[in-house]
Simulated scan of single mutants.
Amino acid sequence: MSDPVVLRARAEASASALPPLLAAAEHLASTVILGDHGRRRAGTGDTFWQYRPAQSHDSARSIDWRRSARSDGAFVQDKEWQIAQSVVFWVDQGASMRFSSAPAIAQKSTVARTLALACAILLTRGGERVGLTGAALPPRRGTAQIAQMAALLSQDDPSDYAMPEARGMVPHSRAVFVSDFLSDLAPIEAALTRAADRGVRGALVQILDPQEEAFPFDGRTVFESMTGGLRHETLKAGDLRDRYLDRLAERKDRLNALARTTGWQFTTQHTDAPATQALLWLYAAMEQPV
Rank of each mutant, 00 (worst) to 15 (best):
T47Y: 07
P158V: 09
A84Q: 14
P138M: 00
P53W: 04
S59G: 11
I105C: 08
R140G: 13
I83V: 15
S100D: 08
V91T: 10
D64S: 03
D157Y: 04
A104L: 13
A116E: 03
R125H: 11
A135F: 05
A69Y: 12
S62E: 15
G73L: 13
R98K: 10
T47K: 13
L132T: 04
R140N: 12
A147Y: 00
A54N: 03
D160R: 00
L122S: 06
Q145G: 00
P139D: 03
A135R: 05
D78H: 03
D156C: 07
A106D: 14
E128S: 14
D58L: 01
S100E: 03
D46G: 14
T133K: 05
R98I: 05
R67N: 00
A102I: 06
A42C: 12
D160C: 06
Q145C: 06
M149G: 02
S109F: 08
S100W: 10
L123G: 05
D58Y: 06
F89P: 05
A120F: 00
A106V: 07
S101K: 02
Q85T: 12
T133G: 04
K79A: 14
A54P: 07
D156H: 11
L123M: 05
A147D: 15
T44L: 15
S101R: 02
L123W: 06
G94R: 04
A120C: 09
R113N: 09
L152R: 12
R129N: 08
F75L: 12
V76M: 04
P53C: 02
Q55V: 15
L132C: 07
A104P: 01
S59N: 00
T47F: 11
A118P: 04
A136Y: 06
G134D: 03
A74R: 13
G94Q: 06
D46Y: 09
A69E: 08
Q107K: 13
D160V: 11
V87T: 04
T110G: 12
A60Y: 12
R141T: 13
L132F: 02
S109N: 09
Q155C: 10
A42W: 15
Q155F: 10
A112F: 05
A42K: 14
A116T: 07
A116C: 05
F75S: 05
A84Y: 08
T133Y: 05
D72M: 14
E80R: 14
G131I: 01
P103Q: 00
S96Y: 08
D160W: 09
A136P: 02
C119E: 03
R140V: 13
V87H: 07
L153H: 04
E80S: 13
Y51L: 10
I146S: 04
D156Q: 14
G131W: 03
G45N: 12
E128N: 11
A116S: 08
Q107A: 14
K108P: 01
D92K: 06
G127E: 05
L122P: 02
W90A: 01
Q55W: 07
G131T: 06
S96V: 11
R98V: 07
A95Y: 02
T47S: 12
C119T: 09
G73K: 14
M97Y: 06
G45T: 11
L123Y: 00
T143M: 10
R113A: 11
T124W: 03
S101C: 10
V76P: 03
